[in-house]
Design a protein around this nucleic acid. Structure first.
Lengths: 192, 192
DNA sequence: AGAGTAATTCAACACATGTAGAAATCGACG
DNA sequence: CGTCGATTTCTACATGTGTTGAATTACTCT
């Protein structure tokens, strides 16, 4: 039985490690996620993780750098004008969070914001430079930035309670009803 | 210089350790907060922490067990009737979060919910059994529980963005303005 | 087919952490 | 003033962690 050395078959081990890393970082947060655990999740030796992504920090950075382009989010948000923005962003929000493929990295991002100051900075960057600067001007008024931030804070709060804390009142409700109740409040921050 | 042994002066070392623990757990979360760090914060040997609070888990439990009686919160909330509940709860919310003495333990609670499943359970218990069962019936209607949960989620989201992530749009605004913009949305979940 | 390179694992180090037990010092109380 | 218990520190251990360097195997290119 060959143990060490290169594996036969051209499997993309690097991608497997990255997927495992996203899952682990999302499930346990930056610090409690271990390189050994990620390696085990990918069926691989811990040293291989270091071979592909040098550092744990670098691995984390790679884990949250993904096709979640804020530009597209802003586009989707404003596609049908500001009057539909509330429902659009709420729908997109749950689409992202309900799909495991996109949930893992954004969960890692959210947990990272709680784990390290660097993670918090990433989230600030994500919302601030990326989204606020695009959306807030469309709202207008002196407190446009505050309104947009509060709309985001509401969505984040729902994510925390539903996907992190697992609060029953929010996990048992069908998404459709959740959207129907939530979207008008988000909308109110945009046009009101 | 006497190193080991009992210290002169009847200082309440136990309370000092507890305060340091609340601060550390709040600042770094359950796992990244270390017993050695807490001990250093209290100017004390790590073993003394174990002497007073046996476990790290027990210490954490003691850190989040505090005068934040959900009963009183529910009372304050409903004191002036449901029509003022939105502003009342929003005010109380910021009062608690702006005072370091009450912020530390609730920060520890919030961070704990992200760090361990046990912490998440504590938060579920805190909101669920304690608050929802008191407030939701006052709202009435088939989706009363959902509405109350969404109101809470909004407040939590603000806490996350303002106190954990440090999002500039929310940290630079005076609390008064924050309350004025936020309270009506919370109120809308109660009466609308 | 042979040489070079990429992929993969093994074994180990250095370090931080939670925790336990023994020892030392101080206050209280007879 | 002597004894007992509470308080406090020292030392140490077992464990899990990120990380490294050497060794081994497979693929690729000429």
């Amino acid at each position: 039985m060959a143990r060490t050395g290169r594996r036969p078959g051209g499997v993309d081990t690097r991608a497997g490690i990255l997927a495992a890393a996203r899952f682990e970082f999302g499930a346990k947060g930056y610090h409690q996620a271990t390189i050994r655990g990620i390696a085990a999740g990918a069926g691989v030796d811990p040293a291989l993780v270091h071979h592909y992504f040098g550092n744990k920090e670098d691995l984390f950075a790679a884990s949250i750098d993904l096709p979640l382009r804020p530009t597209e989010i802003a586009e989707t948000l404003l596609a049908d004008g500001l009057e539909s923005a509330g429902r659009n962003i709420t729908n997109l929000f749950f689409t992202v969070w309900e799909n495991p493929e996109t949930r893992d990295p954004i969960m890692a991002l959210l947990r990272g914001a709680f784990s390290t100051e660097q993670g918090a900075a990433v989230l600030r960057e994500f919302f601030g430079t990326a989204m606020l600067r695009r959306v807030a001007p469309q709202i207008g008024g002196p407190d446009a930035e505050l309104r947009a931030s509060l709309a985001m804070s509401h969505l984040i709060g729902v994510a925390v309670l539903r996907y992190v804390v697992g609060f029953p009142s929010l996990t048992t409700v069908p998404i459709e009803q959740l959207v129907n109740t939530l979207a008008p409040r988000i909308q109110a921050y945009f046009t009101d």
